[in-house]
């Protein structure tokens, strides 16, 4: 179970001239600061999949980066099983498995070595890492290419190894930032299958996406954020009930574009 309460994050604007036209018009720009995330709330229970929706620049990635502890929130709480991890980022890192769409592998290492490295960084012993890699190799069908250098992998192979790397330490929560963006249909299916496996294993999953068909297929709950604020929180049924049948219409309704 993971809960996010009143999360906020602002960035200092170094050079206002470099901002894009859209950013200059954004109401979140206040003086020297850009309030990227202002008030984001959601929660995700055991065995649930939460879809995080929002237009580009809404603050999705910043929110997920705060979840992963890469960025430190200015205010708000992130509770994993009731424990606040904002004050203890190391704890967050142990409990969360994080994968972003733009993630890469160390090309000169094999897939196995990539996964091993992160297993060791998580303090696992060699035996535990080996067992876990065997398990993940079965699950994700890695065994044919696991010992080759990852620079020659196809996009799908890379994504599979990245997934394995993100969950090598058996995290309590899995967070995925646009995990299917830029992937072909087969690689996308790998990610979808994997999320479903996690769901079966009762691991809560939070993922951001622009693909509403994925939301329909996977999600139990939906959160929409726009301009750094939560605009909708609820289960999939109440989300689709916002408009007649079309999730696209529902989405546009939540951000007030209809």
């Amino acid at each position: 179970m993971i809960e996010i309460k009143q999360l906020a994050k602002r960035f200092t604007v170094e050079n206002p001239k470099k901002l894009s036209e859209q950013e200059k018009k954004d109401p979140r720009l206040k003086g020297r600061f850009f309030h990227s995330v202002q008030n984001v709330n959601f929660s995700c229970n055991t065995g649930q999949v939460l879809g995080l929706l929002g237009p580009n620049g809404a603050g999705k990635t910043t929110t997920l980066r705060m979840l992963s502890s890469a960025l430190k929130p200015d205010s708000g709480q992130i509770l994993i099983d009731g424990e606040d991890v904002v004050q203890n980022p190391i704890l967050a890192r142990q409990k969360i498995g994080f994968l972003s769409g733009s993630t890469g592998l160390y090309g000169r290492l094999s897939g196995r070595e990539n996964i091993e490295y992160f297993g060791k960084l998580h303090g696992m012993n060699a035996q535990a890492i080996n067992d876990k890699i065997e398990e993940l190799a079965q699950l994700l069908d890695l065994s044919t290419f696991l010992d080759r250098r990852s620079e020659n992998y196809s996009t799908g192979m890379k994504q599979k190894v990245s997934i394995a790397r993100a969950v090598v330490h058996s995290p309590k929560v899995v967070v995925l930032d646009e995990p299917t963006t830029g992937l072909d249909i087969m690689a996308t299916q790998t990610v979808i299958d994997f999320i479903q496996t996690l769901k079966v294993q009762q691991t809560p999953v939070i993922f951001s996406t622009h693909h509403l068909d994925e939301v329909k297929e996977l999600c139990d709950t939906v959160t929409v954020i726009d301009e750094g604020t939560t605009k909708f929180n609820g289960d999939l049924d109440s989300f689709s009930a916002l408009a007649d049948g079309s999730l696209h219409q529902s989405f546009l309704t939540t951000i007030g574009k209809v």
């Binding site: 980066r65 992963s68 502890s69 890469a70 190391i90 890192r93 142990q94 969360i96 994080f98 972003s100 993630t103 992160f118 960084l121 998580h122 303090g123 790397r165 993100a166």
Partner: peptide, 8 residues
């Protein structure tokens, strides 16, 4: 990013 969020 992945390296930064490992617990080292």
């Amino acid at each position: 990013e992945t390296l930064l969020i490992s617990p080292i």
